[in-house]
Design a protein around this nucleic acid. Structure first.
Lengths: 210, 210
DNA sequence: GGAGTTACGCTACGACTCGTAGCGAAAGAG
DNA sequence: CTCTTTCGCTACGAGTCGTAGCGTAACTCC
């Protein structure tokens, strides 16, 4: 959040209701107008607050949209379905459902695009969105190791072996990248059949890189 | 292109030099200002043309940037390196090099974001960029079949078998998605080592989905 | 070479958004 | 009650948007 832990003790406190109203108005505006059509003034009107109130809390469009969309990623979970294949398929479908929301589709790509020219924005995105997703990969991998579906951490085996951190990063980029690309670039739906085939490919590939 | 084949016979022809100057100016502006900072007036000034000339050829920022970046993707090739593994590694590194260009990084994500609210823009992106990349997958796959590294097209084998079109789409989304995600979202470099590990995973996975 | 057609550069324009400043009022802490 | 901060509101200069009008340049057809 923009003012994380520092708590001013005196003076009138900032309205939490206004925060919620603004973030919700931002998502609504994204759905109707998209990234390019979204304006600060419009969001303020929708939220029923003054434009100056927005600028007191967020530096601009970029930061506002990141916060508005970040909460959507909090809903991602990794239920224990008994097998690694089922767990991955589940999280793939969850992520696809999230990308089916118009506000998420538009905002995600736009803020990533802006972040290529803004280091602070890049950090904000990483903390608010990316790292939360990566936790799911770490958790799913550990579960699979406890089940015996994946070997425990240790030195790589073959000549193509990879260490733990590299594996996690690779899995994360492949899953998130493939789902995003299919949804937003190819424009094809991520349904149960695709999730199943993709997961089969991923698990088959994992066996090859140890 | 915006006026593809239809050729007016009479009147003063449009300046091809102006086209090149505008597209080059657009890329330069993307590098310096990013997507958000790029304005039509600035591009016109850089290119040495009038602002009205831009609007006579492109409807707006979105269409202009797609055309300006599309030519970068024409340089992608699939050299025959003798093995499927080497071919894929090569094209992965080529794609990564392209995404290392600031103008490509910024523009790609931005136009995809805008395309979520613009069907015409989506088609334009597909024709100018996506389809050209997908051809590489089709070509590489056919070569591998001729070498005997992949089985020829036919009905799927196992219970998880997939048909040809599904396989091609999947391979495409996994390759492009993973490279884009690692480069732009995770912010990690795609070097030879990563390309090797990723390709090993992909080929291992391909064996699992037939 | 003249007539017709189209693109060009230039200027100007209203509409809109931006981000900031100043004001008086409201809401909490001490 | 006083101090401090936020609130809504208004107004502002700066910048961008996309379009219109004008005279000129370039090319084709007769």
């Amino acid at each position: 959040m923009h003012n994380g832990t520092s708590a001013k003790k005196t003076g009138r406190p900032r309205s939490a209701d206004a925060d919620h109203a603004i973030l919700e108005a931002t998502r609504a505006a994204l759905v109707e107008l998209g990234w390019g059509g979204l304006t600060m003034g419009d969001v303020a009107t929708r939220a029923g607050v003054a434009k100056t109130t927005l600028y007191r809390r967020w530096a601009g469009k970029n930061e506002l949209v990141v916060d508005a969309v970040a909460v959507l990623f909090d809903e991602l979970e990794l239920p224990d379905r008994g097998s690694l294949q089922a767990d991955i398929e589940d999280v793939v479908l969850q992520f696809a459902a999230l990308l089916a929301l118009p506000e998420a589709r538009t905002a995600l790509m736009a803020v990533v695009a802006e972040s290529t020219h803004d280091e602070a924005l890049r950090r904000r995105i990483r903390e608010a969105i990316v790292d939360r997703q990566k936790c799911l990969v770490v958790l799913g991998r550990r579960r699979a190791q406890e089940r015996g579906e994946l070997p425990p951490d240790g030195p790589p085996l073959g000549p193509h072996g990879t260490d733990t951190a590299t594996q996690i990063d690779l899995i994360f980029d492949v899953i998130a990248g493939a789902v995003v690309h299919r949804t937003l670039v190819s424009g094809e739906p991520v349904d149960a059949a695709w999730a199943r085939t993709f997961t089969t490919l991923l698990l088959g590939g994992l066996a090859a890189i140890r």
